[in-house]
Simulated assay, not measured.
Amino acid sequence: MTEQLAGWAGQRVLVTGAGGFIGRHLVRRLADVDADVVVWTRDDLDLADRDRVRAAVSGVRPDVVLHLAAARDASSVEARDATTAVNTLSGAWIVEAVPDSCRAVIRLGSSTEYAASPLPMDEQAPLRPRGLFGATKAAGSLLFTAAAEQRGIRSAVLRAFQVYGPGDKPGRFVPTVLAAARSGETLPLTAPGLRRDWVWVGDVVDACLDAATADDLPAGAVLNLGTGVQTTNEELVDVAERVTGRRIARAVGAHPGRSWDTADWVSDPAAAASMLGWKSRVDLAEGLARSWAAS
């Protein structure tokens, strides 16, 4: 638990995306410090509806907003339109509606906003996303920051790299690897050499809370959340075998991979360290062991 939240009992904190993987962890952490948490899930409010978003925020009158909500559905024209509105516009709508007394609005962005790079990516890396999700997240971060600057509301965008931990969706990579360890079934893997920067979900929650309470954080700050270490898919499976004590059978090349997969994908988290005093504290082996114990 971050020391900065110790005095937050009774502070009204609005969390969007509260039903998601990271959102559930964040809400539990806020409950531990007796914050007055208002949770929004996709069942509570349509974040693609500007008037409803603004009216709902005005009714809550939050002291802090932690905007984690994101959409990914691209299955139809209507779904793509809704995804674009949620990822691109909802953050700006929230900023427009918060009271002047709001301490901060923090947006959880994504490393997919960046272009692929063979070098560690800092916050000056080009925004050249591949696919609808990254494009809408990148546009949303820019519009969110501009809206906050116009309002004079303190804001930050936290671009998380590959987040993992207990409670992640079953179809994602780490849960799939651990399920194969438990069941003994063969794990389909991508072609060798695809890398990601894996960051523990609790460390990402820490960064969200630290950014919300860091009153000296420059307005409009953008900070990368990652470990600065990248790991291939096959290396992660090796680590999973060690921490679970089970052999994981693999079919290398049987999985087609994702459109955004790349041979290099790693953060430069130096700005978060210097501005927030934040760093990822849980390494991959410990994080996989904790996930295994919780599965």
Rank of each mutant, 00 (worst) to 15 (best):
R258K: 06
R42S: 15
R128F: 04
S259Q: 12
V201H: 03
S291P: 11
P192M: 09
V204Y: 11
D264I: 09
T41P: 08
L276T: 10
L68N: 03
T88A: 12
L209A: 08
T136D: 11
S183P: 15
T136P: 13
S141F: 09
A82M: 04
R258V: 05
E241L: 06
L187M: 13
M121N: 10
L209V: 10
A6M: 08
P175I: 08
Q11M: 09
D46R: 10
S274I: 10
G202L: 01
R24A: 11
M1C: 04
P218L: 02
V177Q: 08
F133W: 03
G257I: 09
A251C: 04
S117W: 07
L209R: 02
L68F: 00
L236W: 03
Q4N: 12
V282P: 00
A249I: 09
P62A: 02
A289W: 01
F144W: 03
A180E: 14
E185D: 13
V39Y: 08
L276I: 12
L132S: 07
T41S: 15
E234M: 06
G184C: 08
T145V: 12
A48H: 07
L209T: 00
P269V: 07
R159S: 06
A294F: 06
P192I: 04
P99H: 08
R151D: 01
D283K: 13
I248Q: 05
L225H: 07
S183I: 15
V60F: 03
V201F: 05
G140V: 04
R61L: 03
A285G: 01
A285I: 14
D210L: 13
W198M: 15
A115Q: 13
V163Q: 02
V53R: 02
G167M: 13
F161E: 06
R28I: 01
A135S: 15
N87K: 06
A219Y: 01
A71Q: 04
K137G: 09
A92V: 04
P99A: 11
A82S: 14
D43S: 14
N87M: 10
L189D: 00
L187V: 11
G59P: 10
L66K: 00
T190G: 08
R42T: 14
P175M: 11
D32C: 14
R103S: 02
A56Q: 09
V163S: 09
A35I: 03
R172P: 02
V222H: 09
A180S: 15
E78M: 04
M121C: 04
P120C: 01
D46V: 13
A35T: 02
S75Q: 11
L158S: 12
E113L: 07
G7R: 01
L89S: 04
G277P: 05
L288M: 12
L223W: 09
E149A: 15
W292F: 07
V229S: 00
P99M: 00
A179P: 12
T112N: 14
E241M: 15
S291W: 03
I22N: 08
A263S: 09
W260A: 15
D215G: 07
R52E: 13
L142I: 13
R159I: 05
A74V: 14
L26D: 04
V27Q: 02
T145H: 10
W93V: 05
A180K: 13
S111L: 14
V86I: 12
T41K: 00
S259F: 07
D210K: 12
A104W: 11
L119K: 15
D36H: 00
G23R: 05
R281T: 15
G19V: 02
V105A: 01
R196Q: 06
V95S: 00
A219P: 00
